[in-house]
């Protein structure tokens, strides 16, 4: 089943605060964002593992923390789980020694400049042709679960589970987050933009022709 981050369609949130802030609301947010980026080479986490780290926050914590507080909490937990920091270090503020091979992964200012604009695609070549064609109807997995790990990461939102949609676009084959988040390899699969009619998603759709499009991997889908 899904975790607390999976909030699409949820009732109870108030109006959207469309206030314009600078890129960040406060300096510490900028620092939290940049520090997270700078720490990523230390554990070699995939983008999917990073997301899963935040999603593993207890629901009450996830809801209580602001956006960049979630990043900080997710980062801290990942650094400890990955052996980069210890709970004792966090508690005492006194650093212990770090292995030389981990220090060798430290991000340099030169590498930041070089990485800007570098594109590392998530598409992969696969042997099998796409199972579904543009225009075809598909049915999504009944529940948004990870087939490899109980409670694991997946990118099928709960609101789009167990429904019939139609393939709008084929994006090629992409790394499968459900595997990559858990160190299970990339297991690339064909990825499709699947359109769902608002009337199939919601009890009271605003407009009969409105749609929501969700990017979904082939193993999330079956023929009707």
């Amino acid at each position: 089943m899904s975790r607390v981050h999976d909030m699409g369609g949820r009732f109870g949130d108030g109006p959207v605060d469309a206030t314009e802030y600078p890129a960040f609301k406060a300096d510490w947010e900028t620092r939290a964002h940049a520090l997270t980026t700078a720490a990523m080479p230390l554990g070699g986490w995939t983008i999917d593992a990073r997301r899963h780290g935040r999603e593993c926050l207890p629901p009450a914590t996830y809801m209580a923390l602001s956006y960049y507080e979630k990043w900080l909490a997710g980062l801290t937990d990942m650094l400890v789980a990955g052996g980069v920091l210890t709970g004792e270090e966090l508690q005492s503020g006194t650093p212990g020694a770090a292995p030389a091979d981990m220090q060798a992964r430290k991000l340099t200012p030169e590498a930041v400049a070089a990485a800007a604009g570098r594109r590392v695609p998530y598409t992969r070549d696969v042997d099998d042709p796409p199972a579904f064609a543009v225009g075809q109807s598909v049915v999504t997995r009944t529940r948004p679960f990870n087939v490899f790990v109980a409670g694991g990461h997946t990118r099928l939102p709960a609101y789009a589970a167990g429904l019939t949609g139609r393939v709008l676009r084929h994006h090629g084959a992409h790394v499968l987050p459900d595997a990559a988040a858990h160190g299970l390899g990339e297991r690339p699969e064909h990825l499709y933009a699947v359109a769902f009619a608002a009337g199939d998603l919601w009890e009271a759709p605003e407009h009969p022709r409105d749609e929501v499009v969700v990017d979904l991997w082939q193993s999330y889908l079956r023929a009707p």
Binding site: G8, Y122, R155, L156, P157, A160, H171, H174, P177, L191, A193, A195, E206, H207, D210, E211, V212, V213, V214, D215, L216, W217
Partner: peptide, 8 residues
């Protein structure tokens, strides 16, 4: 309205 949910 077509809403695109960036799940990938």
């Amino acid at each position: 309205v077509r809403v695109w949910d960036s799940t990938a």
